[in-house]
């Protein structure tokens, strides 16, 4: 199965994945940590950065593995397993490296870093890369854009949630309930960007 590389500028992909096809606000991927770790701006921002780094890193590795191993050996039917163990191993090694060299950041991210392993957005971008048959540059910029977009979205949500932390809410809405509503409203707002450019 040979597909053509889409004729979209990597720069376009980069900006589109931040704004118009934001991982959270238009694909709704990586929602679990997005909702649960957005109470505090500081931790949310830390998680956002971690997601960004892991996205770019795993995208690069998965791209190489996809083109060097999965396609030649015709292993497409087990690509999910391969991608996910690669993501898990990368996060594990990254964790050790951070523990060693960036203890501050490591401590700030705490348990969130291992949690990234199971963040759907991370696997999601790899799978998008496969489906859309991106080139390496496109894939990397797509990953970077998606990571930034994810970061932007969780920062925005955390800022809003922090702002309204003391507001009185109907009982059933407090916590995740209102977070979903805010996310929905933010997603609606982001639809406004779709006029700028669209890649899919």
């Amino acid at each position: 199965m040979i597909m053509d590389i889409p004729a979209i500028s990597p720069i376009m992909i980069f900006f589109a994945s931040i704004l118009t096809s934001n991982m959270i606000l238009s694909n709704f991927l990586g929602m679990c940590s997005f909702i649960s770790v957005s109470n505090e701006y500081k931790t949310a921002s830390g998680l956002g950065k971690a997601v960004l780094v892991v996205m770019v890193l795993t995208m690069a590795i998965n791209f190489a593995v996809y083109h060097a191993i999965i396609l030649p050996l015709d292993l497409v039917y087990i690509q999910y397993i391969i991608f996910i163990i690669i993501i898990a191993a990368t996060v594990q090694i990254l964790e050790m490296a951070m523990d060693r060299f960036l203890p501050d950041l490591y401590i700030k991210l705490g348990i969130f870093l291992p949690l990234i392993t199971v963040n759907c957005a991370i696997l999601g971008i790899t799978l998008f890369m496969v489906i859309r048959n991106y080139s390496f540059l496109q894939a990397i910029l797509f990953a970077a854009g998606s990571g930034l977009g994810w970061w932007l979205a969780i920062n925005a949500l955390a800022a809003i949630r922090e702002k309204m932390a003391r507001n009185k809410l109907p009982r059933g809405l407090a916590g995740p309930g209102i977070a979903f509503i805010i996310t929905g409203l933010m997603a609606l707002a982001f639809v406004g960007f779709s006029g700028m450019f669209s890649v899919q």
């Binding site: 593995v65 191993i69 292993l75 087990i78 397993i81 391969i82 163990i85 690669i86 191993a89 594990q92 090694i93 050790m96 490296a97 523990d99 060693r100």
Partner: peptide, 19 residues
């Protein structure tokens, strides 16, 4: 699949020893 897992395990072990 085994060799990919093996390779990753070796990498993790190496990282563990090194880091």
């Amino acid at each position: 699949l085994s060799s990919i897992s093996l390779l990753l395990s070796v990498l993790i072990i190496l990282a563990e020893i090194r880091l």
